[in-house]
Design a protein around this nucleic acid. Structure first.
Lengths: 144, 144
DNA sequence: GATAAAACATGATATAAGTCATATTTAGGA
DNA sequence: TCCTAAATATGACTTATATCATGTTTTATC
């Protein structure tokens, strides 16, 4: 469904949503252990996310990554799009150029409603929403 | 969503469903042009599909690939599982080992209903069903 | 049987995804 | 102002996916 990169990114963002803020920054070094993702790889992802304002960062001693209020408004789908690109979620299941509502491929009708429903859920759910679910124990994050 | 390999396989099977039978076999050489897939790559996929009884084949002159009645009963999901493996469709969105109904990850509740609906559609739809949709012009197959 | 036409099997290459390593820049604190 | 701790930038390496090429086996036809 998603690539490893997206999954790592989501895990990282969720961890930051729960455990960081402007006054409590988290270093890659620590984060990578908590969420079980290779350090150097996570660095790259976080930099990518920082460039796209999904996470905030500051350099130097006492530096690290954290989420501010604006960061919390990003949706799950935003993050996936940044890391994986839009193609996977936007193109037809068979990647047929000419597939559309008017001239649907055989899989189109079959899955379009459930698929759209799923993508809309991901588009509407913000990082903040997810972190509230976690705080209220409506969801869990076993980070292995 | 699916890999190229799966998409190619589905396109090939659908083409065979529409244009082949025991008395009208189709050679890779021809098939690859019709569905716009590299020949050598398609060969490999077809052999894999033949081994798993998704398609039928016969060697030698007048040989080629075709679908018999049994082949037509395969589901879309069967084919995807054969080519891509089961992991993609069966594991949690974040690939968390311990994610389950009882201890759902934050994305689990969010998408599980629509995701299951989608996967069930793919599981229940056979190649024969799809080919009937095409024959009745309920769907189209622009093979580019 | 000999020939040729097809699938089958295997392996080599290319490209993309994932991982690792190292040097550079920035900023806090002595 | 200098040192050190952090992110940042860049590039090399590895593994998996996708693609290509070549030889082997089977079988219909003459």
């Amino acid at each position: 469904m998603f690539t490893n990169s997206s999954k790592y990114a989501l895990k990282a963002v969720l961890y930051l949503a729960l455990h960081s803020d402007e006054n409590k920054k988290i270093m890659v070094k620590d984060l990578c252990e908590r969420i079980n993702v290779p350090k150097a790889y996570l660095s790259k992802l976080l930099q990518d996310l920082a460039r796209h304002e999904v996470v905030s960062s500051s350099k130097g001693p006492k530096g690290g990554f954290y989420l501010n209020e604006q960061n919390l408004t990003m949706s799950v789908l935003d993050i996936v799009h940044i890391i994986d690109g839009r193609k996977k979620t936007e193109s037809c299941l068979l990647s047929l150029e000419d597939c559309s509502r008017h001239k649907p491929c055989p899989l189109h009708n079959l899955v379009s409603s459930s698929r759209n429903e799923m993508l809309n859920s991901l588009k509407d759910k913000t990082v903040k929403d997810l972190s509230l679910d976690l705080k209220h124990k409506k969801a869990f994050l076993p980070l292995a």
